[in-house]
């Protein structure tokens, strides 16, 4: 099944996962690209997005699988026609004939920006780096069976913290994104729990890249 890589930025980050599916279905229709439909009582156009993205999170590495109904359209043309039909903030970066099996997708590179309105507190950066150098770090995760404790260290492949500007610390991390999954917001959650004095006023995440288990870029 063909796959496309797209980014979600600007105001589009507030569009939910389900709404985004609908938005793509309509954009395909607007661009005259007929999708195949699922079988069943309520046939739906077949599009699926690999890793659902939380509302408010920006991404430059979203994957969407789709299936065109019979038409032979070049990858470049699909990209152009879709981009003309999409909303600002959602942009197709690349179209691939075929994608790798999704179960081989394993790691996500992301940035978590920690914003301090009164300026980055003295000692925050060093404390945060030390925190993530711990042997284990339990955070609370809401699951099907209520709140459970989860050690996030095994799910962090690499992490660096640096001061992006006077008011912002950025955490650049490569984390597991499938089996098990670490929600990057949990990195900020760990800071709030263990370093409450360095809890930021606001934090936001953005996804940068996807990898397989060996660290190769995943498409």
């Amino acid at each position: 099944m063909p796959r496309l890589l797209f980014e979600k930025t600007g105001n589009a980050i507030w569009i939910s996962h389900l709404d985004l599916m609908r938005l793509f279905q309509r954009s395909f229709k607007r661009s005259g690209l007929q999708l195949t439909h699922t079988q069943g009582f309520n046939p739906r156009p077949s599009v699926s997005i690999a890793l659902p993205l939380s509302v408010g999170v920006e991404s430059r590495c979203e994957l969407l699988d789709f299936d065109l109904d019979g038409q032979a359209v070049s990858r470049e043309e699909i990209k152009e026609r879709l981009n003309a039909a999409l909303v600002s903030g959602v942009r197709v970066l690349e179209v691939y004939e075929d994608g790798r099996k999704l179960k081989e997708l394993s790691l996500l590179k992301c940035i978590v920006a920690l914003e301090y309105d009164a300026g980055v507190p003295e000692g925050a950066l060093a404390a945060i780096m030390k925190l993530f150098a711990s042997a284990s770090l339990n955070v609370q995760k809401k699951g099907k069976n209520g709140v459970v404790e989860q050690d996030i260290i095994p799910m962090i492949r690499s992490i660096q913290a640096y001061k992006a500007d006077d008011h912002t610390i950025e955490l650049e991390a490569v984390v597991c994104c499938q089996n098990p999954t670490l929600n990057p917001a949990q990195l900020c959650g760990a800071i709030s729990r263990y370093l409450p004095q360095y809890q930021p006023d606001f934090s936001k995440c953005r996804r940068l890249e996807l990898y397989d288990g060996q660290g190769n870029i995943f498409r």
Binding site: G10, R26, V55, G56, A85, G89
Partner: peptide
């Protein structure tokens, strides 16, 4: 991020 259905406040539709 603190309100329900934030997309209704941002505009930017097709």
């Amino acid at each position: 991020p603190t309100v329900q259905k934030p997309a209704r406040y941002t505009g930017g539709e097709y």
